[in-house]
Design a protein around this nucleic acid. Structure first.
Length: 954
RNA sequence: GCCCGGGUGGUGGAAUGGUAGACACGCAGGACUUAAAAUCCUGUUGCCAUGCGGCAGUACGGGUUCAAGUCCCGUCCCGGGCACCA
């Protein structure tokens, strides 16, 4: 019988389906194990070879756990709301629901080819109303709760209202936007509108003014990555920051718990670090500086209150509320100009700018609370509104950025810390003795911090405060293709939750998905839907991508429940995710949001665990090669001109822009001399007709309007391209489809090859160079069962030899250990070694093959299933038991010891395994080669590690 | 700019602080064949020697250690993230 993967795959795919091999029950006496993949966004370019990397790893692990006796939940679904479908709709008029459904069908087809053990009956789609009903429901719970810091949990908003009615805000310690202070009678006399606004200060889902990128020419709000260099990526139109009233989620209420929760989960150290840096807990002081003109106070946060006598100026964020109020008439124009500039800058730009600091003087002064000195107040882009209090005291002597700012604007620098006794210390180190600092003089920094904190508190000018870098999550999007908010506004603009009975609130039908005028969501066009009853209107923004993905793993436990997001029974059986597999690009976005939602649901008693994911494995990104050609930014006589990469690099790269081209057209792509020839240039102008009249120039000549004019004798061009490694994406024209690989080599080969590429957590560019090795391995495995010449079965029932069992069990040991540590590439190597050795021993014994087939089954499920049945088994190999290592087959009689002299290997000697340390030392010293190397030198020391090595020190 | 990774032959990579380069790809030579494909065998880090061997070598510069790809300090380069891509 010949090895034909496509036939085997077809056969077993339908057999698995007919026998419901991958269906998982919520009723089982077996221990549970939940293996989850980060679900994909179904993009228009289809699944690329990077997606399955993690899916294959998790599938191997899920199958392995199942063969070890667990009831394994291993589901898949789609993160189906998103911007690309909406943009596609704007361009083509195709409804996002339609294109999304098409893309999902394509993804499903592609996933099915790879042989995953998903239980498809549990599939979820976040854009399905039966799913987003519960996303909306959870949002309403957030809206209807506040966070009680004393109880350290979320509580119903009714309880807060009851407290306000009775006692006002006095005894409340809540997570808030700003500290409020009112009595019960003040509360009672508030209008409905005022009460609503007050409650917004406490709700976990609330409205506040935040900024969006607004592009007047495109008439739309842009995402950060749609803005490049201060203009829109599409079209290059100007953009500006526009304030809007938007929904936010009070994730900051959970900052501390998100931080301490990290200690209880099994994530990599780097992942935990990224998250804790993101949360950014710091201790310091909140302080109030009186304004010189008596118009109020300036609130700042500082981690270094000890440096206050070095504070020679204050900096407030340009968006700070006080700016308007304190700016003097003389400075008004300068401030206005500066604000206009800042409006065009992204936060990233503002934080990254290091060469050139910028800022403007408001004309106002604050007073140092300790000595009454006047301190000028500036605004500068490096201070962000939502960071701390949006204002800092600048201490140029002790902070790099403040120092640059002071130098640029000739502001005084007062040394306040003597670091002379700490020669290696940097400017940021909290080391040294205080000088020029009044009552702090002579103190070590760490004592000075404590002393000044006490003084601040006793003077009543501030207090100790823990600050978090984490900011509340902006939850509104001015888009169509997302979950509608289940919120309606009355005549007064007061927000009301829809009753649960009206969920899901479905998206209204639209023909045109372009944004509505005035930075409004496209939903604003659905006027009947918006103005559903006189005087009332619906919220027209929709929820962001992370809404649906923050809780989807819970829905898989009970996917078709229409009474609850999942039943308590299902939640209590599956508990949490045992293994979560996905990319590090989600480190701080998705993972933080879903941990936050989970903790909230835990507070409500709706989920049994406080953390959703017990263990996290990060798969590296499979990158693509991006091939660019250089275009001259200025057109030549109205025509686009492209030049060879080498030429662009030599002649001022800044005059050129990079245009990515389809990698298929590029010869030797990814290599040093990747290039286009005349044939491929013709393909490019056919592919991008806007360049049909462009000029292409290289050393060999000029290509224009389909004609090549050589400079010398060349008959073809070698138009060099620039290769870089980066994400696989449709916009970079470098997507590689797994289907082609599966069609050519088979799914098992594709699965094993992706694993064989290297450690799963490492990023690597895709190439198929080594795939023949894996393909050969599978064929060799097959040939242990069938005679290559006559196709007859070779399987026999003779007793395995000691040697054969040693080979098999060495492999079992290696593979079981390596699966546990997700080292799948070395598993594949171990399989290869085992098969090579069995072949050289001509071993086709049933006792050996039966175990080997089970061992390889998680990696190559199709081939294993076929061979398993060839060994006369009736049920699926998925249900068989994973082989156990028998150590007694692995016992060694002798060990090959490397013998080193001063750490350099000089000899290799085979010695009995049971030799003692002393005997080993003696045997090593007696070796001829060792004697030769020692030649007269005295042996100082001999280090013997039994079973490992011997090192002689002279 | 900040945070987190990574850098080992021609290529993908292996290596609980203990034999650097397992396992593959590619390449070279050979066997089988009329030939090719497929398959099999041998070799394959560089340099010198071309037998035995020797020296150097894991991005670069230092350090710790009997012993460093692995640990520590500094530098360079590449990738991911940085709050509206998902």
């Amino acid at each position: 019988m010949e090895y034909i993967p496509s036939e085997i795959e077809k056969k077993w795919k339908s057999w698995w389906e007919d026998n419901q091999v991958y269906k998982v029950s919520n009723d089982s006496t077996k221990p549970k194990y939940y293996v989850l993949d980060m679900f994909p966004y179904p993009s228009g370019s289809g699944l690329h070879v990077g997606h399955p990397l993690g899916y294959i790893g998790s599938d191997i692990f899920a199958r392995y756990k199942r063969m070890n006796g667990y009831n394994v939940l291993h589901p898949m679904g789609y993160d189906a709301f998103g911007l690309p479908a909406e943009q596609y709709a704007i361009q083509t008029g195709v409804h996002p629901a339609k294109s999304t459904a098409d893309n999902i069908a394509r993804y499903r087809e592609q996933l099915d080819k790879i042989g995953f053990s998903f239980d498809w009956s549990r599939q979820v789609e976040t854009s399905d109303p039966s799913y987003y009903k519960w996303t909306q429901w959870i949002f309403l719970q957030l809206f209807n709760h506040w966070y009680d810091n004393k109880a350290a949990k979320a509580r119903p908003i009714e309880e807060l209202i009851a407290i306000f009615e009775k006692d006002g805000s006095a005894d409340i310690d809540a997570a808030v936007s700003e500290a409020l202070d009112f009595s019960a009678s003040q509360w009672q006399s508030m209008t409905a509108k005022e009460k609503d606004e007050t409650l917004m200060n406490y709700r976990l889902a609330y409205r506040k003014t935040t900024y969006v990128w607004w592009c007047e020419d495109l008439g739309t709000v842009l995402a950060n990555d749609e803005v490049k260099d201060g203009v829109s990526e599409r079209g290059g139109y100007p953009v500006e920051r526009k304030p809007m009233l938007q929904w936010s989620l009070r994730i900051t209420a959970y900052a501390d718990r998100l931080l301490t929760g990290l200690d209880t989960v099994d994530f990599s150290d780097s992942m935990k670090k990224m998250q804790s840096n993101w949360i950014g807990k710091s201790q310091g002081a909140q302080m109030f500086f009186e304004l010189e003109n008596g118009a109020g106070q300036l609130e700042i946060f500082t981690t270094r209150p000890d440096t206050i006598f070095g504070a020679t100026f204050m900096v407030v964020a340009p968006e700070h509320d006080l700016v308007k109020q304190i700016t003097t008439p003389e400075q008004a124009q300068a401030i206005a100009d500066y604000l206009a500039y800042v409006n065009t800058r992204s936060e990233r730009d503002r934080m990254s700018e290091t060469k050139e600091v910028s800022g403007e003087f408001t004309g106002a002064y604050a007073l140092n609370p300790f000595n009454g000195e006047k301190i000028p107040i500036w605004i500068a882009e490096y201070v962000l509104k939502d960071y701390g209090t949006g204002a800092i005291m600048a201490v140029p002597a002790d902070d790099e950025r403040d120092m640059r700012f002071a130098k640029k604007f000739n502001l005084p620098i007062v040394e306040i810390i003597d670091k002379s006794m700490h020669p290696g210390a940097t400017i940021e180190d909290k080391l040294g003795k205080m000088i020029n600092s009044d009552f702090l003089n002579g103190m070590e920094v760490r004592y000075a911090i404590e002393a000044v904190l006490e003084r601040i508190e006793s003077m009543g000018i501030g207090h100790r405060k823990i600050n978090f870098k984490l900011r509340d999550a902006i939850y509104s999007r001015q888009r169509y293709w997302g979950e509608p908010f289940p919120i309606v506004y009355d005549e007064n603009g007061v927000a009301h939750a829809l009753p649960e009975s009206e969920l899901p609130l479905e998206l209204p039908e639209l023909e045109d998905f372009k944004p509505a005028s005035g930075a409004k969501s496209p939903l604003a066009r659905a006027e009947d839907w918006v103005n559903f009853k006189p005087g009332w209107r619906r919220e027209t923004d929709t929820m962001p991508g992370f809404a649906g993905s923050s809780w989807y793993f819970l829905r898989y436990m009970d996917p078709s429940n229409d009474k609850e997001f999942a039943s308590q029974k299902a939640l209590n059986y599956w508990q949490d995710v045992d293994l979560y597999v996905g990319g590090t690009e989600h480190a701080v976005g998705h993972l933080m949001y879903s941990r936050f939602w989970h903790k909230f649901l835990y507070d409500k008693g709706l989920v049994p665990t406080e953390e959703p994911y017990k263990k996290l494995m990060n798969q590296g990104m499979i990158q693509g090669v991006i091939e660019n050609i250089y275009i001259l930014k200025e057109k030549v006589n109205g025509k686009s001109k492209f030049v060879c990469a080498k030429f662009a690099k030599q002649n001022g790269i800044e005059d050129f822009a990079k245009i990515p081209v389809l990698v298929d057209y590029v010869a030797d792509y990814g290599l040093q001399d990747s290039h286009l020839n005349l044939e491929s240039l013709r393909q490019i102008i056919a592919w991008r007709p806007e360049y049909s009249e462009a000029i292409f120039e290289s050393n060999e000549g000029i290509f224009k309007n389909g004609h090549f004019t050589p400079k010398g004798d060349d008959t073809d061009m070698k138009f060099e391209t620039n290769s870089e490694v980066g994400k696989m994406s449709k916009s970079k024209y470098n997507v590689i489809n797994p289907d082609d690989v599966v069609d050519r080599y088979g799914a098992d080969c594709f699965r094993m090859y992706e694993m064989f590429l290297g450690p799963i957590e490492q990023a690597k560019p895709w190439d198929t160079k080594g795939i023949n090795g894996v393909s050969g391995f599978l064929r060799k495995l097959w040939m242990l069962f069938y005679d290559e010449q006559n196709g007859k079965s070779l399987v026999n029932d003779s007793e395995p030899t000691k040697e054969e069992l040693k080979v098999l069990h060495t492999c079992i040991k290696k593979v079981s250990e390596d699966i546990e540590r997700f080292s799948f590439n070395t598993c594949v190597s171990a399989f290869m070694i085992c098969v090579n050795e069995l072949r050289s021993m001509n071993c086709s014994k049933r006792a050996v093959l039966d175990e080997f087939v089970r061992l390889v089954a998680p990696f190559a499920p199709f081939t294993a299933e076929e061979l398993w049945h060839q060994l006369n088994h009736e049920s699926s190999v998925c249900e068989a038991e994973f082989p156990k290592v028998n150590e007694s087959y692995l016992v060694q009689d002798s060990i090959a010891y490397p013998v080193s002299i001063n750490g350099k290997k000089r000899d290799l000697v085979e010695l009995p395994a049971n030799m003692s340390k002393e005997e080993l030392e003696k045997a090593a010293l007696e070796l001829d080669k060792v004697q030769k190397w020692l030649e007269g030198q005295a042996v100082k020391k001999v280090i013997v590690v039994p079973g490992r090595m011997i090192n002689i020190v002279v």
